[in-house]
């Protein structure tokens, strides 16, 4: 098989892994002000993703690095062309990462409230903007023969892309709510189960219309099962969550995110960034890829490293498989003793 095609698939795998994993921790962050009614409950929520969010985020760093190595032209046109959305994503990821680490370090309500804001915005903004970005990749952007994206910010905020953003935001939030039913107990779990139904009121219609639009406008015959599968898995996830089958529900929302991501990559294939100016200017798997030497090298590295990475990340999920509850939080101060008080 063609090496460039393999790397197109590898990059699809990396983004799929990223959206499934960081999807739920974005969701938990987005739900923080709504489900975390007390500081203890907010800590239950944050600690449910505490040990894993950083490892989840490395998936996007790897995806970015892999795009640079395997498709330099794609990476160059995309990242410079989507300048302001990516800037916002970066700012969001910065404040969010720091917020997780710093929030509990000072025992002060105002301090915590600020970081809670940072976690909410830092989670919701990228959850929305990744959808906007990927919808634009599928839809194509204004791009001339020099491979420079000339689309303005307003062009990027077209209806299809905004629907894509709403879809990722609501799907990730749903995914996060289901994660909380699975990984917490007590008040948060009860509220999270209730939230699944409410978020579904947005997520299901948004996702169904977006998936249908994608399939109709950009899909191929073989991507139809993906579109249908994503919609069905999402609906099944909601139904299972309401029935209290939390593990299966989480599996379903993960499958829905995976199918939707693969649908997006399948729809853009064999382009990687279509040009709406003239299809002849489109970046394709063939014209954007690196030379064979780099692709071969990266294939070997990924073939050896990725299974090991998946192995130890899975182990870390297994180590932290227990539900987090208020009882775990209350008597246990921040590790190594209580945090110094403010002022």
């Amino acid at each position: 098989m063609d090496l460039a095609l393999i790397w197109f698939l590898a990059i699809a795998v990396l983004w799929t892994g990223y959206f499934i994993l960081e999807g739920f921790d974005f969701g938990v962050g987005t739900l923080l002000p709504f489900l975390g009614r007390t500081n203890t409950d907010r800590r239950v929520m944050i600690n449910s993703i505490g040990p894993v969010w950083d490892g989840n985020e490395v998936w996007v760093i790897t995806a970015g690095g892999a795009m640079l190595a395997a498709f330099p032209a794609w990476y160059a046109s995309l990242f410079s062309g989507f300048y302001l959305p990516l800037l916002l994503i970066l700012v969001a990821l910065i404040v969010r990462g720091v917020a997780f680490e710093y929030r509990a370090k000072v025992d002060d309500d105002r301090w915590r409230a600020r970081w809670d804001q940072a976690i909410f915005w830092g989670s919701a903004v990228p959850a929305l903007l990744w959808g906007v970005a990927f919808a634009n990749i599928v839809r194509g952007v204004e791009m001339g023969p020099d491979q420079i994206v000339t689309a303005s910010l307003l062009d990027l905020l077209n209806p299809y892309a905004l629907l894509g953003g709403l879809t990722t935001l609501s799907m990730f939030t749903l995914h996060g709510a289901v994660f909380l039913t699975l990984k917490t107990d007590g008040e948060v779990r009860v509220l999270a189960r209730r939230a699944v139904g409410r978020v579904a009121l947005v997520a299901l219609p948004a996702a169904i219309v977006f998936l249908a639009w994608t399939q109709a406008a950009y899909g191929k015959p073989w991507t139809l099962p993906l579109a249908l599968g994503a919609a069905l898995a999402l609906a099944a996830g909601v139904w299972l969550a309401v029935r209290g089958r939390e593990g299966w529900s989480f599996t379903s929302t993960a499958v829905a995110i995976a199918a939707a991501t693969v649908l997006l990559f399948g729809s853009v294939f064999p382009d990687v960034l279509p040009s709406t100016t003239d299809p002849a200017y489109s970046l394709t798997i063939a014209n954007a890829s690196s030379a064979d030497y780099t692709l071969t090298l990266m294939s070997w590295v990924a073939l050896v490293a990725l299974p090991v990475v998946i192995g130890y990340q899975s182990w870390s999920y297994w180590v932290f498989r227990k539900r987090v509850t208020r009882e775990h939080i209350e008597p246990t101060p921040a590790y190594g003793g209580s945090a110094p008080s403010a002022g």
Binding site: G50, P51, V52, W53, D54, G55, E57, V58, I61, T62, G64, G65, A66, M67, L68, A69, A70, F71, P72, A73, Y75, A76, S77, F79, Q147, S290, A291, Y293, T294, L297, M298, V301, A302, A305, L306, V309, Y312, Q313, S316, V319
Partner: peptide, 29 residues
Amino acid sequence: SRFVGDIFGAPLAMEALLAFFLESTFIGL
């Protein structure tokens, strides 16, 4: 990036795959 991605991207991707995953996952643990 367009000009040197083939070369510069390779160590960057290796850094993420071989080092950042290790660092981030085990720091959480």
